Amino acid sequence: MISLIVAHANQNVIGFKGDMPWHLPADLKRVKALTTSNTIVMGRKTYESLGRPLPNRKNVVLTRNKDFQPEGVTVIHNIEDIHSLEGKVFIFGGSGLYHATTDIVEEMYITRIKETFAGDTFFVDYDLNDWDIISRESFEPDDKNIYPYEYLHLIKK
């Protein structure tokens, strides 16, 4: 199964000037819990923004650049190669990869931050009517997570 994991704010904002415009520790913990021991597929820009492979998971970078070969990362050059990856596969970003893989994703783990931020990078538009909501949890701000947010787990109908 090909899954997708993303955090987005209002207007589907996922980034601004190469970074996330928010800090939400609860979401980072959730991402780690869901993706550890699995495979994450990201674009080159997303990988470069992280600066290193994330530990305890297989890191795959999809890029057209044939010379891109960072240590500790599997590099693929075609979206079709995602289908040959073993185990649970998470599309991890960024925007270009999300848009390119919309049709092959069967499951989404979404953190919706109920706040408006300036943004220059966006998640794809999606219609909840096209998905079965497996779970939905809402959270109010607290001392560590200063924005209201919700977790959605969706399976394509």
Rank of each mutant, 00 (worst) to 15 (best):
F117A: 06
D130K: 07
I155R: 13
Y109N: 09
I91S: 04
G94M: 01
S84T: 15
K157A: 04
T101N: 07
D19V: 06
R30T: 11
E107N: 15
K45H: 08
P21N: 11
H99R: 11
P55M: 07
K58R: 15
F139M: 10
L128T: 10
T111D: 07
H23M: 08
K32V: 04
N56M: 12
H8C: 09
N59V: 00
N10M: 09
R57T: 02
G94K: 02
L128C: 06
E106H: 10
K157L: 09
D81S: 11
N145I: 07
I91E: 06
G93L: 05
D81G: 01
N78C: 10
I113E: 01
S135Y: 09
I2E: 00
S84Y: 10
F16N: 08
S3G: 09
R112G: 02
G15W: 00
T63N: 01
N59C: 04
T102N: 11
L34A: 00
S84P: 07
A33V: 13
T111K: 07
T102C: 11
V61A: 02
L24H: 06
R30Q: 14
E106Y: 05
T36S: 11
L97D: 03
E150H: 05
G72V: 14
H77K: 12
D27R: 02
G43H: 00
K144T: 14
K29A: 12
I133Y: 01
Y126M: 14
R30W: 14
D143L: 14
L28D: 05
K17W: 10
E106G: 13
S3Q: 12
S37V: 04
R112T: 12
I14T: 03
H23Q: 09
T116I: 13
D67S: 15
V124N: 14
L128W: 11
M1Q: 09
D19T: 12
V41Q: 00
L154F: 06
T121W: 01
K29P: 09
I133G: 03
M108E: 04
L24P: 05
D120Y: 08
D125G: 08
A118Q: 13
N38H: 15
D125Y: 06
I82V: 15
V124W: 11
T102Q: 15
P21T: 11
D132C: 10
K29Y: 01
V13S: 02
Y47D: 02
V61H: 00
T35H: 02
D142G: 14
G43E: 05
T35R: 01
N65K: 08
R136L: 12
Y126N: 08
A7H: 03
Y151I: 02
S3W: 01
H8M: 15
P55W: 02
V41F: 00
N10I: 10
L54I: 01
D19L: 02
V60E: 03
L4F: 08
K156S: 12
D127T: 06
K88Q: 13
T121D: 03
P70F: 11
T39Q: 01
I2P: 05
K45I: 03
L97I: 13
